[in-house]
Amino acid sequence: MIKKGRLILLLIVLLFSGCVPKQIIDEVQLMHAIGFDELPDENIKGTITYPIFNPDGNVRVETLTAVSHTSRFIRSMLNTQSPKTLTTGQLRVVLFNDRFADNGILEIVNSLYRDPNVGNRLYLAVVNGSTNKLLTTNYTAAPLPSMYITDMLEQNINTENLPKTNLHVFLYSYYGEGMDPFLPIIKAREKTIQLEGIALFRGEKYVGKLDHKESFAFKVLLEGSKTGHYEVEVKKGKRRGHAVVRNIKGTTTYKVKKVNGVPQFDVKIKILGELHEYPHWLNLEEASNIALIEKTFKKQVHGEAKSIINKFQRLKVDPLGFGDQVRRREKGWDFKEFQKQYPDIKINVTTEVEVVESGVIE
Rank of each mutant, 00 (worst) to 15 (best):
359 G>Q: 10
143 P>S: 08
263 P>H: 07
358 S>C: 01
350 T>L: 02
334 D>N: 15
232 V>Q: 07
333 W>P: 01
52 I>Y: 09
290 I>W: 03
297 F>D: 02
129 G>H: 05
7 L>Y: 04
228 G>P: 06
79 N>L: 02
284 L>E: 05
278 Y>W: 10
6 R>P: 00
197 G>I: 07
173 S>K: 15
119 G>F: 02
247 N>F: 01
314 R>G: 00
21 P>W: 03
297 F>K: 04
309 I>F: 05
58 N>M: 08
29 Q>V: 07
299 K>Y: 03
157 I>P: 03
336 K>V: 01
291 A>G: 07
262 V>E: 12
278 Y>T: 08
318 D>R: 04
300 Q>H: 04
115 D>P: 04
3 K>C: 01
129 G>E: 05
294 E>Y: 06
269 I>L: 15
228 G>C: 08
208 G>Y: 06
145 P>Q: 08
116 P>R: 10
116 P>E: 12
257 K>N: 08
48 I>P: 05
287 A>Y: 02
182 F>V: 03
296 T>E: 15
38 E>G: 06
338 F>H: 03
231 E>A: 14
337 E>N: 09
342 Y>M: 01
58 N>A: 12
30 L>G: 04
320 L>M: 09
62 E>H: 12
14 L>F: 13
184 P>V: 07
346 K>D: 12
220 V>P: 00
163 P>W: 10
239 R>T: 03
139 Y>P: 07
292 L>A: 07
275 L>F: 08
155 Q>R: 14
197 G>L: 06
269 I>R: 04
70 T>W: 03
352 E>G: 15
1 M>N: 02
277 E>A: 12
70 T>H: 12
188 A>K: 15
34 I>E: 13
362 E>K: 14
336 K>P: 00
259 V>C: 00
280 H>G: 01
327 R>L: 10
218 F>N: 02
94 V>D: 07
131 T>M: 06
42 E>A: 13
45 K>R: 15
278 Y>K: 05
100 F>A: 04
184 P>R: 09
26 D>N: 15
359 G>R: 12
302 H>P: 00
12 I>L: 15
210 L>S: 10
